[in-house]
Structures are given as C-alpha cells and as structure tokens.
C-alpha cells in the first residue's frame, strides 16, 4: 500500500493541488462552487465581492481560477457563447489515499 499514491499521481499533481488549496480566496471559490456548480466568472466575482466582501479584481479571480483548474479542482466548460466553471472534488481523493482516514463507519472485518 505504501507509495500507491505515487503511482496514481505524479508529484506535480500533488504540488498543484496543495498550492491551490493553500489560498483562502481559492478555498472560498470552492465553497461557492459547492453551493452551486456551473458559474460564470461574473457570478464568482459577484459572490466574492457581495457575499464575502472581498475586494478582489476580476483579473485576480481569473488567476485564482487558473490555479484551481491546473489542480483539476475546477473545470471550465464552454456552452455556446458562455463559459461555466464546475467543481471537481475528485483530486481531493489524493489526500485520503495518501493519508487514509481512520475507518469509523464499520470496523474492519477480521478474516481469519
């Protein structure tokens, strides 16, 4: 089991993921996408400024989204003339595969 995550994910993927998660604004963007996936850049900016009172430029939000996309946490999707941003929490699996959570739901079966 040790080192399994290394096979599944190249080191760069982990670096991108942890870098993306390290910033509070980017975590807030993820929070907002949990509430509703499929947002335009304009909606994300509106939520950050109006809901969270973050004084942040549209260019800065674009850059944050680029970092989140590089980590695979956000996927942008073209739909006609519009562009929407969707959340993908899949890459977070890397964390628990690397550092497994204690199994609290069901005790492990002991097969003799």
């Amino acid at each position: 089991m040790i080192g399994k995550w290394r096979l599944a994910y190249p080191a760069g993927v982990a670096d991108d993921l942890f870098k993306a998660l390290a910033d509070p604004t980017r975590r807030t963007i993820l929070d907002e996408l949990v509430e509703k996936s499929g947002q335009t850049l304009f909606e994300i900016c509106s939520r950050l400024s109006m809901k969270h009172r973050l004084g942040i430029s549209r260019q800065a939000v674009s850059q944050h989204l680029a970092v989140l996309e590089a980590a695979g946490l956000v996927v942008s999707r073209r739909e006609g003339r519009y562009k929407f941003h969707d959340l993908d929490t899949g890459p977070l699996r890397l964390i628990t595969e690397r550092w497994p959570l204690p199994d609290t739901s069901a005790p492990e079966e002991s097969t003799p």
Partner: peptide
C-alpha cells in the same frame, strides 16, 4: 439565464441572455 437568482445581502440578482447578443 446564465445566472440563476442569487441573494447577496439585501440585493437579489440574476443574469439573462437577451437573444440579441447581450447579457
């Protein structure tokens, strides 16, 4: 609509396509 109704404090907004090239 490209943005469904969204409550942000006292203001509620939504964004629609006017079919003539604008939001």
């Amino acid at each position: 609509f490209t943005q469904d109704p969204l409550e942000m404090g006292p203001v509620t907004t939504a964004v629609l396509d006017d079919t003539c090239g604008n939001l």
